[in-house]
């Protein structure tokens, strides 16, 4: 059990940027980002035993993170939580120059539909069309078609 935990901890530490980036870009506020982050980590932990290297680790992490965010249900009433987590960072309200740049990225990507958001994010991370297709669950051809449309959409939005 201890070995499994140590292994899982080091994997999460190595990929925390990926996980948190996905959660941030699929959230409306800091609380939601943190909730999604926790849910993703728990889903990764639960699926850890059954992940037997059927795909690359990076692909699996992306897949679980994106699935968690894409299928997250919004709670109508937010219950009062004790403070459980953090990445001690608030990308929604911090005002330093770097964060403003990141918020600009957030605003651009958030105008897209959820699946398109996932695709453009993976593309920006320099993933191949094949890898993107594997993670999202669509064909490589479909990825290229969607990317063209997404880029057109982003161009249209930036011209408005």
């Amino acid at each position: 059990m201890k070995e499994k935990e140590n292994e899982f901890t080091s994997i999460v530490k190595a990929h925390k940027n990926t996980i948190y980036t996905v959660c941030y870009l699929f959230s409306k506020d800091n609380d939601e980002a943190n909730d999604l982050f926790q849910e993703t980590l728990i889903n990764l932990w639960r699926g850890f035993d059954s992940f037997k290297g059927q795909c690359e680790l990076k692909t699996w992490i992306w897949r679980v993170s994106l699935n968690t965010c894409l299928t997250a249900e919004r709670k109508k009433k937010r219950s009062v939580k004790t403070v459980p987590l953090s990445m001690d960072i608030n990308l929604f309200t911090d005002t330093d120059d770097d964060t403003r740049q990141i918020q600009q990225l957030y605003r651009r990507i958030n105008k897209l539909g959820v699946v398109d958001r996932a695709i453009i994010l993976l593309w920006l991370e320099n993933m191949s069309y094949e890898e993107i297709g594997q993670i999202i669950g669509i064909s490589t051809k479909n990825v290229s078609v969607k990317l063209v449309r997404i880029k057109e959409q982003l161009k249209k939005m930036s011209n408005e």
Partner: peptide, 9 residues
């Protein structure tokens, strides 16, 4: 930015 952060879950 995220690289500098730590997780406590």
């Amino acid at each position: 930015k995220l690289e500098k952060e730590h997780i406590v879950n």
